[in-house]
Simulated assay, not measured.
Amino acid sequence: MPLHVPPAPAPALRSVLAALGSPTAVREARTPALRSTEGPLTPELPLPLHVLDGITPGGRTPRTHLAGWRFLISDPEHPVAAADTRLTPDGWAFSHFFEGPYITSTQRALRQAEQLTTHYQPRLLSIPELYMLTLWLHADASADGASGTPAPHDLLVPLAPAPPGICAHRPLRVSELLPVLTLRLAPARLLGQPV
């Protein structure tokens, strides 16, 4: 398996385990799958969740920042939900549970990435301006998962649902996808029209 999943901070994992053990947190979550699952629920595949911002024309590298860690929550058979954690002044804390198409799409993209011959470190990269989430396959498999920016040779796998015109589950190098995102976010500016 060429994927090297970075370890999540221990307090982030503990906060998710505490939330899973709390009947109130599970009952109040807007995740019917959590409430209806029989059997134990386990947090798996912690992925650092980075947010990409500062996409501008001119080829400058956009900025990223760590927004949290996301854990897939699995029943004995498959992932049914996800849990996000976030950094607070007191340390890592559980944020919320959720479900939806990104759960199965993330699992599919990870399986797809496992078939590659190059070693990668999986991360998630959110592009809020496009309501887009990608699996970010960082080429430096030993890097600190909590920091860094997408390198030109890293792969981004848009998760479904992807924005119109961007093919979900088609791995693209950052150097290929970034110009497309730039065009999508700043078409008027690129055409010389007033914004």
Score class of each variant (00 low, 15 high):
residue 33 A to M: 07
residue 84 D to N: 10
residue 31 T to Y: 10
residue 49 L to M: 11
residue 35 R to D: 03
residue 37 T to H: 03
residue 94 F to Y: 10
residue 76 P to L: 07
residue 23 P to W: 12
residue 86 R to M: 05
residue 45 L to M: 15
residue 28 E to Q: 05
residue 34 L to I: 05
residue 27 R to W: 08
residue 92 W to R: 03
residue 89 P to G: 10
residue 14 R to V: 12
residue 83 A to H: 00
residue 75 D to E: 08
residue 16 V to N: 02
residue 29 A to Q: 06
residue 64 T to K: 07
residue 87 L to Y: 01
residue 43 P to I: 00
residue 23 P to K: 15
residue 73 I to R: 00
residue 56 T to A: 15
residue 16 V to S: 07
residue 21 G to C: 14
residue 71 F to S: 05
residue 74 S to P: 04
residue 77 E to V: 13
residue 88 T to G: 08
residue 48 P to I: 07
residue 61 T to G: 10
residue 39 G to D: 01
residue 50 H to S: 02
residue 90 D to H: 14
residue 68 G to D: 04
residue 89 P to Y: 11
residue 65 H to C: 11
residue 89 P to F: 10
residue 30 R to E: 11
residue 73 I to K: 00
residue 85 T to S: 06
residue 69 W to S: 03
residue 21 G to M: 09
residue 42 T to C: 02
residue 71 F to N: 02
residue 76 P to Q: 04
residue 91 G to M: 09
residue 71 F to M: 08
residue 23 P to E: 12
residue 18 A to F: 12
residue 54 G to A: 13
residue 58 G to E: 07
residue 90 D to M: 15
residue 87 L to M: 05
residue 58 G to P: 13
residue 66 L to A: 06
residue 15 S to L: 06
residue 35 R to Y: 10
residue 81 A to G: 04
residue 47 L to P: 00
residue 76 P to S: 05
residue 47 L to R: 03
